[in-house]
């Protein structure tokens, strides 16, 4: 290879590297720096190096409650997106026989991903509200004497919203893993007398693990960073770290928001690094 052809990849990768440097690496480092800044009402960023924002954050019991609640939302969203996503992927991979049908049904599951999450979240309100369709049906059919209050502005609604938005992130990678399972393997297990459950438990689930791990990473990252769904469907009753940060930003309190963002990022990274050890993403595509 000549010298010039050896430099080609660098030129090709340069735009990507420069964009990430300018709009991802630098800003994230800056958030770290700003978390040590001071602030005033008339001057929102005063360069400084004090631990005041962290002290304030880590000394408040509200912080721990908020993180605990975010973790709880995360765990619940994970359980439901995983079980539903796995079931859907399993159906598509092993029960749909023809490839065109498979592609069509797979598209049906993925198309909402390319539409607005905001609208998809808002669209639960006319269904779950006090006067909403679900309550109209419950009261009309006599199943409930009066409208059920916990359908909207509750943890239930937030989890429902997460499952609605993020199950797709489980379906796609798990389906991808399942499609790589050699059918001969399953046939051999059958011939050797394995039951449907044994095939599922000893072949399908272990070989779907990379897909499950990738889906899990996505769901955790999405839920940890969310503030919109919690705000719209949880109302004032549900707390989350993302919402706290956005509230601080609303008051132009950048440094405390940055400190909170740093802690949130570290927690998310710790969770995800643990999962990355299980799987090498690049090989799974």
């Amino acid at each position: 290879m000549s010298l010039s052809s050896r430099t080609v990849p660098y030129f090709q990768a340069a735009p990507l590297a420069l964009i990430f440097l300018a709009f991802f690496v630098t800003p994230v480092l800056l958030v770290g720096a700003v978390s040590f800044f001071d602030y005033q009402t008339w001057d929102i960023l005063i360069p400084d190096f004090n631990f005041y924002n962290y002290e304030y954050l880590l000394e408040s019991s509200t912080t721990y409650r908020t993180y605990a609640n975010t973790a709880k939302l995360c765990a619940l969203a994970w359980v439901f997106t995983l079980s539903i996503g796995f079931t859907i992927a399993y159906f598509l991979a092993f029960h749909v026989r023809t490839v065109p049908t498979q592609i069509a049904l797979f598209l049906v599951c993925t198309i909402p991903f390319w539409t607005s999450n905001i609208i998809r979240t808002i669209s639960w309100i006319p269904l779950l509200g006090r006067e909403g369709l679900v309550n109209q049906a419950l009261v009309g059919s006599g199943l409930a004497a009066e409208p059920v209050e916990w359908l909207l502005y509750s943890e239930f609604a937030v989890i429902l919203g997460y499952v609605h938005l993020y199950t797709l992130f489980m379906i796609v990678p798990i389906f991808n893993s399942m499609m790589r399972i050699d059918p001969a393997l399953i046939e051999a297990a059958r011939d050797a007398g394995a039951s449907q459950w044994q095939v599922l438990w000893t072949i399908v689930i272990p070989l779907s693990r990379p897909g499950i791990a990738i889906g899990t990473i996505f769901v955790i990252a999405m839920v940890m960073g969310d503030y919109f769904t919690v705000d719209v469907l949880g109302g004032a009753k549900v707390a989350s770290v993302g919402k706290t940060i956005v509230n601080e930003l609303g008051y132009l309190q950048y440094p405390p928001a940055a400190a909170n963002a740093v802690v949130l990022t570290l927690v998310t990274i710790l969770l995800i690094v643990g999962l990355m050890r299980i799987v090498n993403i690049r090989k799974e595509l």
Binding site: A17, F24, P27, V31, V34, L45, I245, L249
Partner: peptide, 25 residues
């Protein structure tokens, strides 16, 4: 570079927004 791209994908979005906003400020 690959890990930076993956990190950019899974980083809580609000962090990136605060960083770019603070940088411009």
């Amino acid at each position: 570079l690959f890990y930076i791209a993956v990190a950019s994908l899974i980083m809580p979005s609000i962090v990136i927004s605060i960083g770019i906003g603070a940088g411009y400020e």
